[in-house]
Structures are given as structure tokens and as C-alpha cells.
Amino acid sequence: MRRARRAGAAAALLALAAAAGAAPRSARADSAALRVDPWRVEVRASASPAVARLGERITLRWTVRPRTPVRARIGAPASGGAFHWSGFEARPAGVRDGRWPRGEEGVVGGAVPGLEARADLQVFALGDIAVPGPALEIDDGRGRRVHRLPMVRVTIVPVVAANDSAADLRPARGPLAAPWWERVPWRLVAAVALLGALAVALVVGWRRRRRRAAAAAAPAAPRARRDPFAEALAELAALRRLDLPGQGRFDEHALRLTRIARRVLETVAAAARPGDSTPEIVEHLVGTAFDGGEIERVEGLLRFWDRVKFARAPITVAEARAAEDAVEDLIRRHAPAPAAPTAPGRAA
């Protein structure tokens, strides 16, 4: 009897122990399924390579396959701490061209069997590292719920092991040389350029001063004495050759005769000044070498030419020729001895 009782007690204890051990295993299974019903959603995660060096790129892949049609979306993981994510991409799984069917974007478990995602990860910490999965949003018609994809463990080892005495290390190298514009002593270049410019300015100034001194030391060439009466006769002869009255250009002819006569009057009567009007010239001629009758003739000629120039007074060719003769007579009467050369005859 005692043996039977002991056997029954042992069996009861074993049953209790089995029941106690089964409950934790079920809890661990629910935890691994991340609170997603395993009968409705199948989730897988992988990392390649599982053992990587510090900072080496690791490719992580996740696959979500619902057993019934649901709307699912995998969010991009965020970098932070020892993790640096890049190249995240999510697309429908089991579809030939990788595109969602029209009108079924985001729906998996039907025409699109599942959803897959990949991302590149760089880990900057050593040891056995647990990498959390990205967020998974599922909407099965009862509202949107957010879950977390399974955690993946990777092992990160140093780039060069501490006990690796045969590591092929690169030789030590100095810093890169600075670019040429940073190596040029610009202050020295500017100082040399300034000195060069100063030297050129000194040489140019010395040569100019030397030329001026040589020009001052050289005797000035004698200038021929200007004969205003000869110049007036030559200008009158040139005017006669133009034959302006014969071309009907009486105003231009009167303008040139006035200029010749004014030059002679300014030479003979020093009181007359360039720019004087006809009344002012007549006023300045009083008390000079011109007598009263000659002043009246000069005044008549000037006023007649003013009417021709400004008022377009009528004039004939004969009157224009007579005006030329009057100017020539004025020049010859007041030209000093020896007499000026005879002016060529007027054009026929």
C-alpha cells in the first residue's frame, strides 16, 4: 500500500511539473509571434551575414504572409544609437513585376500572397547584438493595429582581432599636401609685384624728365612770321575759285567774305575783338586808321552780308563779285609795305 501511495504521489508531482512547464512554452510562443495571431499572419526575419565586422553592411529581410486578406504596411526603421539604417525597400511578395494589382494597393493575403521588406544595417557596437524589427501595421477590418516584426540577433566582431599578430595593416602615411594656392606665399608675391610696379614707374618718370630736359636745351626752331594780309588774299582767291555765287550759294559766300573782312579789321584795328557784332565792330573802328568814309563802307558791307546770311535778302551774282572786289581793295589798302603778292584773277 505504501508503495502504491508513493507511486501515485510521484505521478501527481510529475503531472503538475508537466503542466507548469507547458505554460511557459506557450507564453514564449505567443511572444515570438509578437502578439500576431500565428494562424492568420506568418512572419519571418533573417540577417546576412549573421557574423559581421564593426561597421560592415548587413542585409536584413522580413516577410509577412497573412492567411486571410488584410491591409499591411512595413514602416522604415529609424537610425539611432549604434544602428545606421539605409536602403529600406518594401514591396509585394510573390508578384511577377513587383507591382500592386490595380485597386488592391496594400492588400496582402489575396492576389498578393505577402509583403516583403529589406534594409541595410551598419552596427557600431561589439558583441551579440539584438536588432529590433521595424513596425508592422495591420488592418483586418477591426481597425489598424501596430506590431513589431521579430528581433534578429547578429554578432559583431572587431575589424582586427586583439590577438591577431599577423594582420596586414596599411603603412602609416602623412597628411595630404595642401593645394598650391595655399602653399604660395601671397604676401611675398604682392610685395615683389609692388616693388616691380614702383621700379617701372621710376624708370618711366626718369625717361620723361630726360626728354623734357633735352627738349628745353634744344634751340627752338625759328617760326615763320605770319602775314595775315597774305593769308586773307589767299583765302579770297580760294573763295573765288569755288564760284559759290554761280552755284546760287549766296549765304555761304557772304559768310566766308564776312570772316575774311573781320580778320583784316581785327588786324588793322586792334580794338576790334573776335565775336563782336556789326555795331560793335563799327564802334571799335572809330578813332583807328579807318577814316569816316571807309567806316561807312565797311558798315554797309557787313550789314548787307548780315541780311544775306540771316534774312536771305535777294542778291545777284554781280553784287557778290563786287563784294569780293571791295574786300580785296580793303586788304590791299591796309597791307603794310612791301605789298602783298598779287591775288590770282577771279574765275570767269
Rank of each mutant, 00 (worst) to 15 (best):
Ala237Val: 04
Asp306Ile: 02
Ala213Phe: 08
Ala320Pro: 01
Trp305Gly: 08
Gly127Val: 06
Leu198Lys: 02
Trp39Phe: 10
Arg226Phe: 12
Gly246Val: 05
Arg142Gly: 13
Leu14Pro: 03
Met1Glu: 13
Ala313Gln: 12
Glu296Pro: 01
Arg297Ile: 14
Ala15Cys: 07
Ala311Thr: 12
Leu194Trp: 11
Ala47Tyr: 06
Glu324Met: 06
Ala191Asn: 09
Arg223Gly: 02
Asp139Cys: 00
Pro158Glu: 05
Arg307Val: 03
Gly81Leu: 05
His284Ala: 15
Ala215His: 12
Leu257Thr: 04
Ala214Phe: 10
Arg173Lys: 09
Arg187Cys: 00
Ala335Pro: 01
Ala311Met: 06
Asp128Cys: 05
Leu242His: 09
Arg57Ile: 13
Ser277Glu: 09
Pro69Ser: 06
Gly21Arg: 13
His284Glu: 07
His253Arg: 14
Ala348Asp: 11
Asp291Trp: 08
Leu169Val: 15
Leu233Pro: 00
Glu283Ile: 00
Ala17Lys: 09
Arg321Ile: 14
Ala9Lys: 15
Arg25Ser: 06
Gly143Phe: 04
Ala199Leu: 10
Ala47Trp: 08
Val64Arg: 09
Asp164Val: 06
Leu14Asp: 03
Ala261His: 11
Arg3Asn: 07
Ala15Thr: 08
Trp100Pro: 02
Ala45Val: 07
Asp329Ser: 12
Arg332His: 03
Glu235Gln: 14
Ala130Asp: 08
Arg96Ser: 12
Ala15Asp: 14
Ala130Gln: 09
Arg99Phe: 07
Pro101Ile: 04
Ala167Gln: 01
Ala216Cys: 04
Ala130Tyr: 03
Leu265Cys: 00
Arg3Ser: 10
Leu136Tyr: 05
Glu42Lys: 09
Ala76Pro: 11
Pro113Arg: 06
Val95Ser: 12
Pro92Phe: 04
Pro274Ser: 05
Ala178Arg: 15
Thr342Gln: 13
Leu330Phe: 01
Gly196Tyr: 14
Gly248Phe: 00
Ala22Trp: 15
Leu302Arg: 01
His84Ser: 11
Pro150Tyr: 14
Ser46Met: 03
Leu121Met: 03
Ile295Cys: 00
Val36Ala: 03
Gly114Phe: 10
Ala76Tyr: 12
Trp186Cys: 07
Asp329Met: 09
Ala45Arg: 03
Leu13His: 10
Ala238Asp: 15
Thr258Asn: 14
Arg148Pro: 02
Arg249Glu: 13
Glu89Thr: 13
Met151Asn: 14
Arg259Ala: 08
Glu137Pro: 02
Arg312Cys: 02
Trp39Gly: 05
Glu231Leu: 02
Ala82Lys: 05
